[in-house]
Design a protein around this nucleic acid. Structure first.
Length: 485
RNA sequence: GACUUGGUAGCUCAGCUGGUAGAGCAUUACACUUUUAAUGUAAGGGUCCUGGGUCCGAAUCCCAGCCAGGUCACCA
């Protein structure tokens, strides 16, 4: 415990000696949020309304007998309080607690309730004259002091590690941080609203899975004692949602927490949120349009506009998103001149030149794409025409077996969404999974045998999308408690 | 996993080629009855991330480790 903590604990003891509970159990009366007060300030003054409100103290300015205090409440607005012993109700004027209120007992960070009237100070600041005050919660750990003048912020709390580990402090002190999470909530709600308009139903599928399928990633492994068997935290919910389409829903979606036992960086957290949505009787072309409509809807509802500045690039989601074939993109930037038929030997030669250490065809292409193209894609692009060996769960084009009906949406060099017309031929699906040399979810194949209508499915990286739309370069800024060692 | 930058007071940071640890805000005390980054005066507050090494002497140089940021790899 350090000096300031010790001092505050001492204050608590003194407060208790005065018969005041520093953590009272109270249902308190609140008739105005600060936001509401500021909105109706003229009316409130005119009618001399009595205000009951509570909030956290952010600044105390002692001026001899009078004191100015700034508090902020859940409405994220600040208001100034004015405290003067002589202006209190008579019964409080000789009360020791009130006499030393802001000189001794109350600190920055404390949560208080007050009763008072609104007035205007000499410098024309709307201020509440304190009539009565109750301490609701004493703050024992000094909160970082942030000061503002002319919208400039001084003395920030900005150590990233501390902000993530003590997110509660970050939320109290950094307005921008809290705003990110409010926007996150809004966006998720608007996505839900949009999908519900089409009567797609929101579902929950198992997080604990017998076989971690639907993607290729290292899973977290756990164990069921009674069954005496290993279970896996899902890396994807894809196969389950397809089973539900087999079951006959008009469309299903899930905000899926997925878990991947891999490293952490700006766009990866071990647990992350993917919106998976599956719609029968549609294909990937339909989905491209659907996704763009969704993006426009989100932006309009959340930001009231479709033009957004992201990482210094102006993006207008209303503009039709370009569709570019994967190999065209690669050849445009790399001049390698490869295509779906390029032999593995040729690809290996390229690898040697580029110092790429992978052997599988799909990984080679992915690496080449990352090296030459990824950083160049800033504006939204649908990358289409992925080769079959990169897409084991996607349906081939009817006129070209080697190319699948798949697209990925890239914005600001980040993969935001991945979608394809689902492969619903059980025999073909089994063949492709077999090639992967992985344990096959036979129940998934069985469901396909029963018959899945032609279906399109999409996965949208929610954390990434929200980071993007809030102009954050790191998803940790939009994950409340990012994983840390 | 590789490379790289950083870790000093509650917060934000300074600390040069090694010589007793600094500032602003915050805290404490005093003054001040309309301030708003309040002001003035004074005071307290440090395992300089941890452990070794070099040296008469290390926050500073060297080695190892821990934690974090960034870049890359892995993430079909």
């Amino acid at each position: 415990m350090f000096e300031q903590e010790y001092i505050r604990e001492k204050k608590i003891k003194e407060i208790k000696l005065l018969g005041i509970d520093p953590y009272p159990s109270k249902t308190i009366k609140i008739n105005y949020s600060i936001k509401k007060i500021l909105k109706n300030k003229k009316k409130i003054i005119k009618n001399n309304k009595i205000l009951y409100l509570s909030g956290r103290i952010f600044n105390i300015r002692n001026m001899g007998r009078s004191t100015f205090v700034d508090i902020k409440d859940y409405s994220e607005k600040k208001i100034q309080l004015y405290y003067n012993l002589n202006k209190l109700n008579k019964k409080y004027r000789y009360n020791k607690f009130y006499i030393f209120l802001f000189k001794k007992y109350l600190d920055i960070g404390d949560i208080i309730w007050i009763k008072g009237n609104l007035f205007i100070t000499k410098v024309k600041e709307y201020t509440i004259l304190i009539k009565k005050i109750i301490l609701l919660s004493k703050c024992l750990y000094p909160i970082p002091n942030v000061k503002k003048k002319d919208k400039k912020i001084y003395y920030k709390f900005k150590d990233q590690e501390k902000r993530y580990r003590m997110r509660y402090l970050d939320l109290i002190v950094n307005e921008k941080s809290k705003k990110n999470f409010i926007i996150r909530s809004l966006i998720i709600n608007y996505i839900r609203k949009f999908l519900n308009k089409f009567n797609y139903i929101e579902v929950d599928t198992p997080i604990l899975q017998n076989i971690p399928g639907g993607a290729y990633a290292k899973p977290f492994i756990t164990y069921h004692n009674k069954f005496k068997k290993k279970l896996y935290l899902r890396i994807s919910n894809e196969l389950y949602l397809k089973k539900l389409i087999v079951g006959g829903f008009k469309g299903v979606y899930e905000f899926s927490k997925n878990f991947r036992n891999e490293s952490i960086d700006k766009i990866h957290n071990p647990e992350f949120t993917i919106l998976e949505c599956y719609v029968p009787y549609k294909n990937y072309v339909w989905m491209m349009n659907f996704l763009q409509k969704l993006l426009i809807y989100i932006c309009k509802k959340t930001f009231n506009k479709t033009k957004i500045k992201i990482n210094n690039i102006n993006i207008d989601f209303k503009k039709k998103i370009k569709r570019i074939k994967l190999f065209n993109l690669i050849n445009k930037y790399s001049k390698l001149n490869i295509n779906k038929n390029t032999s593995i030997n040729t690809l290996r030669k390229i690898c040697k030149k580029l110092n790429i250490n992978v052997d599988k065809k799909e990984k080679i292409i992915d690496n080449i794409f990352n090296i030459y193209c990824k950083n160049k894609i800033k504006n939204p692009v649908f990358i289409i025409d992925y080769p079959i060996y990169m897409s084991p769960l996607a349906k081939s084009k009817s006129n070209n077996y080697k190319i699948t009906e798949r697209f990925e949406l890239y914005i600001n060099s980040i993969e935001i969404a991945n979608a394809y017309t689902e492969l619903n031929d059980p025999i073909e699906q089994y063949k492709r999974l077999k090639k992967q040399n992985k344990k096959i979810d036979k129940d998934f194949i069985k469901s396909l045998k029963i018959g899945m209508p032609p279906t399109v499915g999409i996965g949208i990286g929610i954390d990434r999308l929200i980071a993007l739309l809030t102009n954050n370069l790191n998803i940790q800024e939009v994950i409340l408690f990012p994983q840390m060692k």
